[in-house]
């Protein structure tokens, strides 16, 4: 078409291709009468999961917040008596969230996960701001066996130094043995 050099064959072909769709079935699903299938890895409402022992998985490392392209995650780290980390507050502003799932990819503890639930409309925008109590679920989500503190070198109430996965017993620096 540019400069009149073409003879619009491409346009005619496009029209023909579109016309053929007169005889194809509509892809649209008649929601809400008919619920579409959403795969487990669908990126919908964000939840915080718990580890197999029922503790919060989130260690407040802030990576989800850092990677969030719309900066809609804010949290503050707090420490338990045994030195483990957890979020004092964890807030997602869903009125900003674009469900890109990068927080889930960034999460080193599988705490933050996206679920196949997208029905979260609200009449009041303020209700789109989810705090930790709204996000935390009583379940392990997609990675049922993972517990970060069993892998991490950090000592916790239930795990001494050297008891984590693939760790040797603590070294006694005062020992003269090789």
């Amino acid at each position: 078409m540019d400069g009149g050099s073409g003879i619009m064959l491409s346009e005619l072909r496009t029209m023909w291709e579109v016309l053929k769709h007169t005889f194809t079935k509509a892809e649209t699903v008649q929601y809400p009468e008919e619920m579409p299938y959403l795969s487990p890895r669908y990126r919908g409402r964000i939840v915080l999961t718990r580890d197999p022992d029922g503790e919060e998985r989130c260690v407040a490392c802030n990576l989800c917040a850092a990677v969030c392209p719309v900066d809609c995650i804010a949290l503050q780290k707090e420490t338990r008596a045994d030195g483990t980390w957890y979020p004092e507050f964890f807030r997602i502003n869903f009125s900003r969230c674009i469900m890109c799932g990068m927080c889930e990819e960034a999460c080193p503890t599988y705490a933050i996960q996206l679920t196949p639930d997208f029905e979260m409309c609200e009449y009041d925008r303020q209700n789109m701001v989810y705090e930790k109590e709204n996000l935390l679920i009583n379940g392990v989500g997609k990675y049922p066996d993972y517990n970060f503190y069993r892998v991490s070198g950090m000592q916790t109430a239930t795990k001494d130094k050297g008891e984590a996965k693939n760790e040797a017993a603590p070294i006694d620096p005062k020992s003269l043995l090789p």
Partner: peptide
């Protein structure tokens, strides 16, 4: 890379 700009104060007002 300052994070959480749209959520920091959302707890008070969205």
């Amino acid at each position: 890379r300052y994070s959480g700009r749209t959520a920091m104060h959302a707890g008070v007002s969205v």
